[in-house]
Simulated scan of single mutants.
Amino acid sequence: MKKIVIMLTFVACTGMQAQVAVWNMKSLDTAKANKEPEIAMLIRDADKKLTQQLTTVVDKEMTPSSGDKHDYMSMGRYWWPDPIKADGLPYIRKDGVSNPEIEKLDRYPLGAFAKSIETLSLAYYVTGNEKYAQKAVDNLKIWFVNPDTRMNPNMNYGQTIPGIRNGLGRGEGVLDTYSFLEMLDGVELLKKSKSFLINDQEAVKQWFTAYVNWLLTAPVAKEEQEAKNNHGTAFDVQLARYALFIGNEDLTRKIVSDFPQNRLFSQIQPDGSQPLELERTTALGYSTFNLTHFLDMTKIGKVMGIDLLQAKSQDGRSIQKAIDFLIPFLNMSVSSFPYKQIKDWDEVREKLLWQMYRLDKMVEKPLYKEVYQKKLKKSKKDIGILLF
């Protein structure tokens, strides 16, 4: 095996309390001071969520094979009924083609819940109005605390495939809780609110402590941890973030420190390509998707005083090299793309530009400004653009 030398930069690490790990709060503060239109849009969205009721895990029509509706359940996105079987079982895979049946289970309600916490907590942060914090806390209690509605802290039935494994989920289901990553930044903002009582904070922490234990011990979780592609990357990012949230700094530091060897250098080739993502039917999409995970971990690393942008193998593998490999595709048509991208060509290239913009916000001297400044559509439709 070719020898790999890891170069990491360690910087001063400040206090570990109330850590906003993923969001760019400096960008948000600037937008607030300048009264950018996204701030008004954020408040309008939050006002709508004040009256919205959550759909919970116990509201789904189906019941997991455990018999407990408190267990989260979703279905594999790219799995469809077998047309040559009378009952369609077992389902067969169509990579890149989403089955609308996924909307019947818990994936979308979980995402809507997490988004509500993000929006309401940000509105509380920029306005100081307790009504937003109170609604966010109410929603947190619905999902994590209240006995009648709470989700059990496991993903044993995530991304199930009808007709396979007797209803047990797959490691891929762990990816569904990636929605909690940014949500926890919102939870950190709520800690300054008088509406977020200490016992409620502790209850949410206990839920994530149990979930971290599940991630570390469950056979289904181990499947995802052992994944060699974006799923394995997302597993590490989630575990590091949740460990940070519950105060397990040793676990967070270990995951971040091992990340270059375990994920970056194993998934990125010396030329910057990500072979396991390029073999998909949405190759540019998955390469960009995995890049977002790399940058999420970079943000977590900065909290721990570890600069993953400086991680470079002896043969040149690095996050920047992964971006550089993708840049030429920005000027291509989908028909000229040397891999497969069966949908969302323009949307994926826009996401890639945003990740380049995001990285530039992490460094003192911009690396990619000339690439994205003319191409990037700075839409006023999403508060998310401020959080890069």
Rank of each mutant, 00 (worst) to 15 (best):
K94L: 09
E224D: 12
K340V: 02
Q238A: 14
G301M: 11
S257N: 11
L105V: 00
D315V: 06
D296N: 15
D59L: 12
Y108W: 10
D271N: 13
D29G: 02
R150P: 00
L308G: 03
T149Q: 04
K377D: 13
S257T: 15
Y339A: 05
T209M: 11
N99H: 06
G111C: 02
M151L: 01
L295A: 04
E226G: 01
N230A: 14
P90Y: 00
L189V: 08
K222N: 13
D106A: 01
P153L: 04
A12T: 15
F265H: 04
N262H: 07
R349C: 10
Y178T: 14
T56K: 08
T288F: 00
I300E: 02
A46W: 04
S379M: 09
N199V: 12
I102H: 01
E223S: 11
I323H: 09
Q52G: 01
N156M: 10
R317D: 04
A21Q: 08
A136N: 08
V174Q: 14
M297K: 01
N230F: 15
A283G: 08
S379W: 02
L386Y: 07
G305S: 03
A40M: 06
L168Q: 14
F388V: 12
I268D: 03
W345D: 03
D324W: 03
A18G: 09
I306Q: 05
Y132W: 09
K94M: 07
K321C: 06
Q159V: 10
P83H: 02
I255A: 04
K131S: 08
K381T: 13
G173I: 07
K3V: 13
N331C: 02
K3T: 12
I255Q: 08
Y132R: 08
F196N: 04
K205P: 01
T9I: 12
A136Q: 03
G96C: 11
S121V: 04
A21T: 13
K321A: 14
D95I: 05
Q225H: 12
G247L: 05
S333M: 05
L239N: 10
M41E: 06
L367S: 06
D271M: 03
K377I: 15
S179C: 13
R44D: 06
S74A: 08
Q373S: 15
T14N: 05
Q206G: 00
V20D: 01
Y211V: 01
N166T: 01
E103V: 06
E36P: 01
V220S: 03
V174T: 14
I4R: 11
